[in-house]
Write a protein that binds this DNA or RNA. Structure first.
Lengths: 141, 141
DNA sequence: CAGCATCCTTATGGATACTG
DNA sequence: CAGTATCCATAAGGATGCTG
């Protein structure tokens, strides 16, 4: 990873979008980011990328989310029009969640972030550890 | 729609990454997502994409973040090795923040999400409003 | 200017028990 | 199975005042 060229591709591929607009429609964007940028929402959308899943499948796939949190997040995503909730009136109740077109458009950027996290997790972990060492330690009592 | 032709582009561009691994190294990824997927972190990284900025510049650019939150977030990003903090020992203290190589690699996926939010904000808003109408209303007392 | 410390309010999120 | 409801702990986050 030789560092010679500072940032060649950045400005060519993305012009400054809303990052610099202070507090106009930016408010709405921030709200959205706080919601979709949420830890669980990204994971849910990511898992739904491959096809519709039922409640328990999502919960198992993510592993670590409580039933309550999953319910709340799914409701939120449904409200925002990113996923649909289909209830099959069978005797063991079956509910399937699937991304909408709008939700599908979010999959690529969402997976982009998820994949980045997966790819750089240990590097960040190392950096974090180094930082903790040269400052007062991980937990300074 | 059956699963035969339901989602054409998704699986070709991203194989299921970590979304399905329940609770192994996934724990670390989830932790990272919760941090970088954070509302402010994404905005900060997005703003820093164009070049180094000083504290007040970031605060002004984002517009709506409190000083405390900005400080905490910047510290966190620094700890994770995503940005550097440079203090110039001048008489009006100047502190500049800049993305590291690691942080730069996050810019593209981060801006992807930020731009998605900006592009689809009003659509989500409409969807949300529609949902609120057909259910008990925005605030059901 | 940049940031730390303190107080205080609200939001987040887990555990548990109960229902259609 | 897929929730809903309740309780409770903790974390997030704003406001204010003080420092180098």
């Amino acid at each position: 990873m030789t560092e010679a060229q500072a940032r060649p591709q950045i400005e060519t591929l993305k012009p400054p979008p809303v990052c610099g607009e202070h507090g106009e429609a930016n408010q709405l964007v921030r709200d959205l980011l706080g919601r979709i940028g949420d830890k669980w929402s990204l994971m849910i959308i990511g898992n739904l990328a491959e096809g519709p899943l039922r409640f328990s499948a999502i919960q198992h796939a993510i592993g670590g989310i409580s039933q309550r949190m999953l319910t709340l997040n799914l409701r939120q995503l449904e409200r925002d029009g990113l996923i649909t909730r289909t209830v099959y009136a069978e005797v063991p109740p079956r509910v399937e969640y699937e991304v909408t077109d709008l939700g599908r458009s979010l999959i690529v950027p969402a997976l982009g972030l998820v994949n980045w996290a997966a790819a750089n997790a240990d590097q960040v972990k190392a950096r974090r550890h180094a930082y903790d060492l040269e400052h007062g330690g991980p937990a300074t009592p």
